[in-house]
């Protein structure tokens, strides 16, 4: 049973280090300024992300069709 298959759960991916760098440069923010997600979150556990990782979330949006969101994994 994969919780990620549930219709309410959008796609979660761990960003690679260089992708994180690129993203932060693009947005002009520090890592800590990103929205957070807890390390205890069931989906974070499922994809095996560790605190400090940045997760890319690809949501289905009612307005934009697809929207991409980033969250920093915290304790």
């Amino acid at each position: 049973m994969r919780l990620q298959d549930h219709i309410l759960v959008p796609k979660h991916e761990i960003l690679k280090e260089e992708e994180v760098e690129e993203l932060l440069n693009l947005l002009g923010v520090k890592k800590e300024q990103l929205p957070k997600i807890k390390a205890s979150d069931p989906i974070v556990k499922e994809i095996g992300a560790k605190p400090g990782d940045v997760i890319k979330i690809t949501r289905k949006s009612l307005t934009a069709g697809v929207s991409i969101f980033y969250r920093l994994v915290v304790e």
């Binding site: 298959d5 549930h6 219709i7 309410l8 959008p10 989906i43 969250r71």
Partner: peptide, 28 residues
């Protein structure tokens, strides 16, 4: 079919399926 099973208890969704699912549930 757990992938299409829903509840109107948003806190329960948060606990079982995580924060992103909870966001989707709040909107819905």
């Amino acid at each position: 079919d757990f992938t299409r099973t829903l509840t109107n208890d948003i806190y329960e969704i948060y606990e079982v399926l995580g924060i992103e699912a909870a966001r989707a549930a709040i909107i819905k």
